[in-house]
Design a protein around this nucleic acid. Sequence first.
RNA 1: GGUAACGUGGCCGAGUGGCUAGGCUCAGCUCUGCAAAAGCUGCUACAGCGGUUCGAAUCCGCUCGUUACCUCCA
Length: 497
Amino acid sequence: MQQKLNLYNTLTRKKEAFEPLHAPFVGMYVCGPTVYGEPHLGHARSAVTFDVLYRYLKYQGYKVRYVRNITDVGHLENDADEGEDKIQKRAKLEHLEPMEVVQHYTNIYHVEMEKLNVLPPDIEPRASGHIIEQIQMTQEILDNGLAYEVNGSVYFNVEAYNKNHNYGKLSGRNIEDLLGNTRTLDGQEEKRSPFDFALWKKASVTHIMRWPSPWSDGFPGWHLECSAMSRKYLGDTFDIHGGGLDLMFPHHECEIAQNQASCNHSDGPRYWVHNNMITVNGQKMGKSLGNFINLSELFSGKHDMLEQAYSPMTIRFFILQAHYRSTLDFSNEALQAARKGYTKLMNGLNVLKKLKYPEEGIAEPDQKLNEDLLKLAEDCYRGMNDDLNTARTIASLFNLLKKINSLYLGQLKIETVSRGTFDTVRNTYQELVLNVLGLEEEETGNRDEMLGMVLAFYKEAKEAKDYDKVDAIRAGLKRQGIVIKDLKTGVDWAYEE
RNA sequence: GGUAACGUGGCCGAGUGGCUAGGCUCAGCUCUGCAAAAGCUGCUACAGCGGUUCGAAUCCGCUCGUUACCUCCA
């Protein structure tokens, strides 16, 4: 049933059978958020995508170490010398300590991810906590002659690197071509070539996020943290590196260059996995375009583009119903459809809970039915194994669900299904929905209202002097830890003490 | 300008050279006090034009359209 997982590797532009370097161990690094703003739908897509990969690898029995970083330093606002970094800019606006801003948005990120049932990574390193490692890596690259220092800043020398390596191998770029038509950006006079990128930046006088280094008081460059931290926790070479498609260039390209140019002398990751973007009206949802929707807005429905609130599981299902390498277009209609589809899957879970395999009266197995059921179950895994095609898996689960419902209603005879087939069907459905896709039941309805209804029946029964029913209701509620209080003013309830 | 994708039925969204994707919507049926749920049935598709092929939505070419990356971005 469990064939090999095939993953599309951006590096080779092919689907490849996934083989860990040191089975059963798997090292996986994913670019986490830059914590200078609220998490939005795009963050959710990346997190959910790699959450499913993480869950599926674990489900297949691998021992996974999942590292997802928090970027809390280093992204320059622009390329100018006086460029402030994003964390700092926000800090000034709000008159907060940079670390306060970082903590604030990190907390929100964690809360929202938990709502989406995204498992926490095994290690969640912060760039600011790994300055020493980043300085060391910079030094290595300098020692290897592939970086140079100017005025206290250190830049990666792409052209020198490209003599013996291939800068652009990940994103399919050719450096000679690139050199021909580059936009000139301000503040690059320190760099020898426009492609060179900062490993270490000297901080201006007003820059408050700064650390001492052999070159200057400053801060690490944009791409260094992921190289340094993935190496620290996963080794010079490891299995999977994930992130949004928009990080492929230059971020991930630079990571490879840094890894090769340091003492790793290796690309680092072996499989590069990139999730595609969420779009709105066909356009990428992103900070720069200002068309993003925060997760809190989605959950509350408070946004001009939203017709209603959408629950976390609706969002998760919405994301999973598309393949991660396709763009996914946001719309209210699509989300409403996702809500219903999700509910349908949950109803299936409940049906399975109630569906018992008969202890006796087993009939002659229906060969065809058994085969059909096993094939449908297998299809569910086939989707997962084919580059984590959750859209196909969900489609297969719906097909399986039809059979499950029919068995439940007696339209298909459960006695003619073998015990083994039945267990396979049940396990497949439950495991994939709950543990792999990570969809869980959401509370619906209002408990107070439900309780109110029960109390109304209680009152009716009491007035009718139907004391058997009265006692039954009392006993039932007591099992839930609730006692009924008959007051002069009416019926009320309290928690049992 | 360079590079890379994409264009599927009312909507979303998979997919393979020939075999039902799936969800939502809509219509009908079964069931039902009325419903709902569930099951069954129906509806409609592969941007356009060529080419390869016994056969292409699926491969190739061209055209049109959309997007992404090339600057921080999940």
